[in-house]
Write a protein that binds this DNA or RNA. Structure first.
Length: 356
DNA sequence: AATTCGGGGTT
DNA sequence: AACCCAGAATT
């Protein structure tokens, strides 16, 4: 626990030679693009987020554009990326910046943390990368590096351990040998070290600039640190979805409620079991429920439960009465699907073409 | 302090 | 199958 060595100096020297200098959000590196990238990269790998980032900034190049866009457009750009609260928070934060910060991101970590979707680490990442301000991050990469470098033998997600890790990174970032002008590089260097060298499995310790005083390497503990969280098995849940097409081949889509899983996204009408699916059908549609064509079940895994989705398909359906022309239930043509935020497994299902 | 939010990739 | 990943908000 001696943050008085040349941690930052060695890390920056390594970064200059071996860091990542061509990530999409680095050219140009504007506050808006840094912010967007940090939100997209929460619990998401660079390789996954990169194409979404390119598409997003092409459609909404500035914070002003984002604030002015309909939420449905933002969710459509996020569709398939997961953790959709990030998209809703991003949109709300953009509007807040328009009203309270003159259309710009605030250059202040406390104001950044007050934005929805921005916590302590993300605020520090934005401030350091956008303006070279002196703030320490503590993301998954830094936690892994710190646990190994200091030989932390407890799961880093525990509040007490996390507090200890924050104290460590705060001490390192206060090193006078770390120049103000290099704070953006320092933050990027830590993430690059964790993502490309000090990886979860099979880290390249032989190439590491910190190998001379890494506790885990010294003690042969690298492959055991950081310790994993205590696992518990995830429950199995079930859902029946109703895929109804009208005579024009349009699909009946329903907007999910603003809270819970897939909040505010568009999906097929869904029920917990088949009797409830029948009830929904008979309330909303005219036709014969028993004429449903069952399609193969889809197994989808979330982080905290597994979901088996059983689709039922009908053609030539129409709604009862006048229900349907509203913001939560409507017929959608196939070529309009790209304009909606749709969960990945439902989008994948709709792209298959059920047989006659 | 524990749970809730996705989806893709790795092992 | 289990686990992880540039975490934050909610309860």
């Amino acid at each position: 626990m001696k943050p008085t060595n040349d941690f930052a100096t060695r890390l920056l020297a390594w970064f200059d030679v071996s860091g990542r200098h061509d990530l999409p959000w680095q050219h140009p590196r504007t506050p808006y693009r840094v912010w967007l990238s940090e939100i997209m990269l929460q619990q998401t790998q660079v390789k996954t987020a990169a194409p979404y980032f390119e598409r997003f900034v092409a459609a909404l190049p500035t914070l002003r554009d984002l604030a002015a866009a309909p939420l449905d457009d933002v969710l459509a750009l996020w569709s398939g990326l997961g953790y959709y609260a990030r998209a809703r928070n991003l949109h709300a934060a953009a509007k807040l910046c328009m009203e309270q910060h003159g259309g710009e991101l605030p250059r202040d970590v406390e104001a950044l943390k007050a934005l929805p979707g921005v916590g302590r680490s993300t605020a520090a990442a934005i401030a350091s990368q956008a303006w070279n301000d002196r703030h320490a991050i503590l993301d998954g990469n830094v936690k892994r590096v710190m646990c190994r470098y200091h030989g932390v033998e407890s799961f880093p997600g525990l509040p007490a351990i996390e507090k200890q890790l924050w104290e460590l990174v705060d001490a390192y970032v206060a090193d006078p040998a770390l120049p103000d002008a290099r704070m953006a590089d320092y933050t990027q260097a830590q993430m690059d070290l964790g993502a490309t060298l000090c990886t979860r499995s099979d880290p390249a310790c032989v190439l590491c600039p910190l190998q001379s005083d890494c506790v885990a390497l010294r003690d042969g503990r690298v492959q055991y640190l950081p310790r994993p969280r205590i696992s518990k098995k995830t429950p199995q849940k079930y859902a029946h979805v109703l895929w109804a097409e009208d005579p024009q081949g349009r699909i009946l889509m329903q907007r999910r409620p603003p809270t819970g899983i897939w909040a505010s996204l568009w999906t097929l009408p869904q029920a917990d079991d088949e009797p409830l699916a029948r009830d929904w059908f008979q309330t909303h549609l005219s036709g014969e429920f028993a004429h449903a064509v069952p399609l193969p079940a889809i197994d989808h895994a979330f982080s905290h439960y597994r979901l088996r989705i059983t689709p039922l398909h009908w053609r030539g359906m129409q709604l009862r009465g006048r229900i349907g022309d509203n913001d939560a239930l409507r017929w959608v043509a196939r070529d309009e699907l790209d304009l909606l935020g749709i969960p990945a497994p439902i989008r994948k299902l709709l792209l298959t073409r059920p047989d006659a």
